[in-house]
Simulated scan of single mutants.
Amino acid sequence: MTIGQLCCVKKRILSMKYSGLLLSASVLLAVGVMSGCATDQAAQVENASATSWVKQPVSVTIALGKPYTLQFDKMAAKLTPQQEEILTSLALQMKDAKSIILRGYCNKRDIGNAKDSALARAVNVQKFLVSQGIADQKMSLRYNTDDAEHAVELELGN
């Protein structure tokens, strides 16, 4: 072998050592990152499962004269547990109101008996509020079938 060939071989060996070192460092970095992600994810799952049974309180307020809207599915008139929770959080505020307007919405382009559906939604909200101790006499029911909504709007009057 000539000196030129030996230099070439030496460069290749150094290059391979450098590549191997770089590859090893890359693998170690990837393993470290992956194990860190797994640990964090496990901790997040553990923390979530430890507190998943704790319900966060719902805090909703309605300004006088400003409506609050409960959305419904197109074919639904029954209150969901989430809607009942919202109404429960509003009960104290509604007890203090002098009047409450419950306006049921149902789009007449979506449902044939839109008036009945809109009123059924408002009546279900009214029944739930009465069960929460709100006087039936202060509530009035209305309906709207022209707007493209499926909801009940609550408006407090002073």
Rank of each mutant, 00 (worst) to 15 (best):
Q93Y: 05
I134H: 06
D73V: 03
L87W: 05
L28Y: 08
D40Y: 15
A38R: 01
D116F: 04
Y105L: 01
N113I: 08
G157D: 01
A48T: 08
T145P: 08
R103H: 06
I111W: 11
G65A: 12
S52M: 11
V152G: 06
L102W: 02
V130K: 10
E46R: 14
V123S: 07
L6C: 10
A114W: 07
A118R: 09
V9D: 15
V123Q: 06
A151G: 05
A97V: 06
Q41I: 12
V125G: 03
T39S: 11
I111R: 13
Y68S: 12
T39A: 09
L6F: 13
A148E: 06
T51M: 13
I134Q: 08
S15C: 13
Q56L: 02
C106I: 09
V54P: 06
D136T: 12
K98N: 11
P57W: 09
L70N: 04
N144L: 11
A42P: 09
W53L: 01
A76Y: 02
L154E: 07
Q56E: 13
G104H: 00
T51N: 15
V31F: 12
I62C: 05
Y18W: 02
K66E: 10
S19V: 05
I134G: 05
V58L: 01
S99F: 04
S26Q: 00
S99W: 02
Y105V: 00
Q71M: 12
S89Q: 06
A50S: 13
E153S: 15
K78Y: 10
Q93F: 04
E149W: 11
I86M: 05
I134D: 01
D147H: 02
R12N: 12
V60G: 01
Q83K: 01
G65K: 03
A118D: 00
L79G: 01
T69V: 14
E153G: 11
T61D: 08
I111Q: 14
G104P: 05
E46I: 04
C106P: 00
K55E: 02
P67E: 14
L29F: 14
S24R: 11
K11A: 13
E46D: 08
L141P: 00
A63Q: 08
Q44S: 07
L23W: 12
K11S: 08
L23N: 13
K78M: 03
V60L: 03
V123M: 00
A38M: 02
G133N: 00
L22S: 15
A43D: 08
N158M: 11
L22D: 14
F72R: 02
K66T: 15
A118V: 06
L129D: 01
L21N: 10
S117D: 06
K74L: 08
C106T: 02
G65S: 05
L119F: 07
D116W: 05
G157N: 00
I101V: 15
L6W: 11
C106N: 03
S35C: 13
